[in-house]
Design a protein around this nucleic acid. Structure first.
Length: 562
DNA sequence: GGAGACGGCGCC
DNA sequence: AAAGGGCGCCGTCTCC
């Protein structure tokens, strides 16, 4: 039975486990990850059957002091600790069990919901009412809310008992050595500086261009149903969907039709519409914050957002800012006054991990040389010298990445605009050159329940899905890359204070194979060396025998190439 | 008028 | 038979 006690908990030891849950008044849902909105409501600390309820912010620091030696159990600890830091000093800690992140480590790909109510249902076979969570508004706390908050903390230790039955040494290593330290690194991220005026000009311009094109169009280009109906009635005899690739192909097949002309404008409108909406005014209106006069964007990162273990980003998503067709959006992301951006990205990270997984000597040899990876692969396949502009390089890059995604002969043929026979021949040559790839693919085909990354992260497969084989190919590579960059981030965070004592952790961006730092100009060179060393050494240690490369540049905005 | 599904598309 | 992995956000459409 749950006993609610309105006082600070007693002093606990490292043998004790406590469930911790924080409630905040009037949280802005879009800024939950930032300690700038909302006010302290309740802190619940559950120890066995006793739940200590604290309703004053000045109780936070003394209460946490009492439980400092104990194991903390928190559902989505990044949120609670971020906000607890408003009222107490909460340094990174080893004795932490995040039920949400650990559930993702244990069951990534097996389950796809990880809220507290989902865990309670799965582990405790109980329905948990979550409606009350939305009721923390104003300043008043009702007895029902106290009950609700206490229960949130109370169930945590019961969930841990159940989760421990699934925990093995590999999963524990992932939590202890990658996800937990990475979480504390993500919690110390700085906002990413932004040139708001430049961004707004782009937003206005793109909106105008979209509207100009729309005025000339007989259909709403964003209405899938109407576009399809219109194009089929005006020349495109067959049309399964209206995505860009399909419309371009149909335009070539049925030239000089009304549909061909309209489809070009539809795609142009969609392109400007995408820029004007996802990367438009809302972006700065919803997510802008200020450090004095300096505006920045502070997105949220989910430490294990993807089932493969890769982090994801939202509010706003900073991992899909355009770069391929135009640099102008990334040009808006800038360092603070007197600072530089230090941008490090792994060279062909997924290819290196593929080479390691496959034990393919030719591919490992290319990775460990100083040659451009894709050119060297193409040269080995076709026995001709290939430079960076050669179309064979692009095709080879497409093949190796495509194979990592489980691409078929038909998929390659469609992508390259060639016949199935030609595609089959290219793949034959590819596997002849890199036979380890074929062996590895056969091995992955046998995986039925789950696959693992090199670091030991489990990715569960759905045996009833025809996508299972493709996941078996991709998850170890995508997940391995996630493990690698997360560990590099964690190492950077761990070592940072030893090198730059009083300088706050300077990371402002994490984009899968890339880390962006915002540092004092006079530190830029030394930081760039530190970053490169950390990224390379972390990867080499995780994938023994590989010599990873990290390209690090010092820049005045996020778009710069070296 | 809100919620959820869907199609589409930006990134790695 | 279908045949490229992982995300998050937007507008449209449908339903209640």
């Amino acid at each position: 039975m749950m006993n609610i006690i309105n006082q600070i908990p007693p002093k606990l030891s490292s043998q004790d486990w406590v469930g911790v849950d924080l409630e905040i008044f009037d949280l802005n849902q879009k800024q939950m990850h930032r300690p700038i909105s909302g006010r302290f409501a309740l802190l619940s600390i559950a120890h066995g059957e006793d739940v200590y309820i604290l309703d004053k912010p000045e109780q936070v620091a003394p209460a946490l002091e009492q439980i400092n030696d104990a194991w903390w159990i928190i559902q989505n600890a990044k949120f609670d600790i971020t906000h607890l830091r408003r009222w107490a000093n909460v340094p990174p800690r080893e004795r932490l069990w995040d039920t949400m992140l650990i559930e993702r480590i244990l069951f990534g790909g097996y389950y796809d919901t990880f809220a507290l109510a989902d865990l309670v249902r799965r582990h405790l076979f109980t329905h948990m009412e979550k409606e009350l969570q939305k009721s923390f508004t104003g300043n008043e706390i009702t007895p029902e809310q106290i009950q609700y908050s206490a229960l949130d903390a109370y169930v945590l230790s019961k969930i841990v008992i159940s989760q421990k039955k699934s925990m093995d040494s590999k999963s524990w290593k992932i939590w202890h050595e990658i996800d937990r330290p990475a979480m504390f690194a993500f919690m110390d991220f700085q906002g990413f500086g932004i040139d708001v005026e430049k961004w707004k000009l782009l937003a206005i311009r793109n909106k105008q261009r979209q509207e100009q094109i729309d005025a000339e169009l007989p259909v709403n280009p964003r209405s899938y149903k109407k576009v399809k109906e219109f194009l089929k009635a005006n020349g495109f005899k067959r049309l399964d969907d209206t995505e860009a690739d399909s419309l371009e192909k149909a335009g070539l097949k049925y030239p000089n039709t009304i549909a061909a002309e309209a489809s070009r404008k539809i795609l142009e409108s969609r392109s400007y519409g995408k820029m004007a909406s996802t990367y438009g005014m809302n972006f700065v209106e919803d997510f802008l914050e200020y450090d004095g006069d300096f505006p920045f964007i502070f997105c949220n990162y989910w430490i294990t957002g993807a089932e493969t273990g890769r982090p994801s980003s939202d509010h706003p998503n900073m991992q899909n800012i355009p770069i391929r067709d135009t640099k102008e959006f990334r040009e808006c992301f800038i360092p603070r006054l007197g600072h530089k951006l230090v941008i490090g990205d792994y060279t062909a990270q997924e290819v290196f991990i593929t080479a390691y997984n496959c034990r393919d000597e030719a591919l490992i040899g290319i990775c460990n040389s100083d040659k451009d990876v894709y050119s060297a692969m193409a040269k080995l396949m076709y026995d001709v010298d290939i430079d960076k502009k050669d179309p064979l390089r692009k095709r080879t890059k497409g093949i190796v990445l495509g194979i990592d995604y489980g691409m078929s002969v038909q998929g390659l043929a469609r992508n390259e605009g060639i016949s199935d026979d030609e595609a089959a021949e290219i793949l034959f040559k590819f596997f002849q050159t890199f036979p380890g790839m074929k062996t590895w693919m056969k091995k992955q085909e046998n995986a039925k329940k789950y696959v693992t990354t090199t670091a030991g992260r489990k990715c569960w497969l759905n045996p009833f899905s025809n996508q299972s084989y493709r996941n078996a190919l991709n998850s170890p590579i995508q997940g391995g890359a996630g493990d690698c960059t997360k560990k590099a981030l964690a190492n950077l965070h761990y070592h940072w204070p030893y090198v730059f004592e009083d300088i706050p952790f300077p990371v402002v961006g994490y984009i899968h194979d890339e880390l962006v730092l915002d540092v004092l100009e006079e530190h830029a060179v030394i930081v760039s060396k530190f970053l490169e060393h950390t990224m390379v050494e972390t990867a080499n240690k995780m994938f023994p025998g590989m010599s990873f490369r990290a390209d690090v540049k010092i820049a005045d905005n996020w778009s710069e190439k070296d």
